[in-house]
């Protein structure tokens, strides 16, 4: 039998087995009711609330010794918070990690879906700050839960309509509300609108964990996920026309805007840094071969 204590005194994947069991039961319910927020008890972790504890608890309850793990924040594997979360998971599980999206069996992310297509043997875990899409129109949990129960989303539609009247556009940037399976309006976590279409009829299971707000929800594969929109004001992703990545030359990826220290010039680079690096490597190899 495998050694259970991977790192001095801590259980495999940190959480005790009872906690994992509870989270696992909730995950199964979340999958069975797509887009519905399942309450859970939520444990404290050695990482602060609001820093990915929801996603982490899901990952800890999912992960096994055979998994290959990727952790990203803002699309990047090397941002401090991603490094920290990966460190804790490796310390307590000893699993292999990767930066290659196409190799990872389990990916934990904050604010992005990796650019490369995900497949049915992979699971993407999102860190969620605000699980409740109706919070922007109603502060009370009791009331928003009633609105979900009755599928009464009229106040959110009014909010979107008023946005258009005032600004001529829906001004929601990231964290764009979506309708799941025609029943529940869901917060897709603060991913950019760019990533929203990738939730629809996907191959991969998407799991969402909000540690501080203590909610778990899911989008199973092959499930309808539609952004809320009006026919005359359709949903639009971020506009990167005429822009390309200054590093890999990509014109079809989500870009970060960089302001150069010295010149003050504006440049763009891929937000998915691992994919960007891979593209550059492939380009170089193609160049050498040619």
């Amino acid at each position: 039998m495998r050694e259970k204590k991977v790192q001095s005194g801590y259980n495999f994947a940190f959480l005790d087995e009872q906690s994992k069991k509870e989270i696992r039961r909730r995950m199964l319910k979340a999958v069975a009711i797509p887009g519905y927020q399942v309450p859970f008890a939520s444990r404290e972790l050695p990482i602060a609330r609001g820093w990915g504890t929801g996603g982490l608890q899901l990952t800890m309850s999912l992960i096994g010794p055979e998994d290959i793990l990727k952790v990203i924040d803002q699309g990047s594997d090397d941002v401090v918070n991603a490094v920290n979360i990966r460190k804790l998971l490796v310390l307590t599980t000893g699993v292999r990690t990767t930066e290659d999206t196409r190799e990872a069996t389990l990916i934990q992310t904050r604010h992005r879906i990796p650019e490369e297509p995900l497949e049915d043997w992979q699971i993407l875990v999102f860190q969620v700050p605000y699980p409740e899409p109706l919070r922007r129109v109603e502060p009370s949990e009791v009331k928003t839960r009633e609105m979900h129960a009755e599928a009464d989303y009229s106040r959110l539609w009014v909010y979107l309509y008023e946005d258009i009247v005032r600004w001529g556009e829906i001004t929601i940037g990231a964290q764009y509300p979506v309708m799941v399976n025609g029943r529940y309006v869901m917060d897709p976590s603060p991913i950019p609108r760019w990533d929203v279409p990738r939730l629809n009829m996907a191959e991969t299971l998407y799991l969402f964990g909000a540690g501080r707000e203590k909610r778990i929800y899911a989008v199973p594969p092959h499930t309808r996920v539609e952004p809320l929109q009006f026919t005359d004001y359709p949903f639009r992703v971020e506009d990167f026309r005429c822009k390309q990545c200054a590093l890999c030359g990509s014109v079809d990826t989500y870009l970060d805007e960089i302001i150069d220290d010295t010149t003050g010039a504006r440049r763009y680079i891929c937000s998915d840094t691992a994919y960007c690096a891979k593209r550059r490597r492939l380009k170089e190899e193609a160049g050498e071969n040619a």
Partner: peptide, 20 residues
């Protein structure tokens, strides 16, 4: 049945089947 590793493996199969 290993309480840590067997239950993790069975759960992942369950989750996969519940999602599909």
């Amino acid at each position: 049945f290993d309480p840590v590793y067997s239950s993790q493996r069975v759960f992942r199969q369950l989750l996969d089947c519940m999602a599909r």
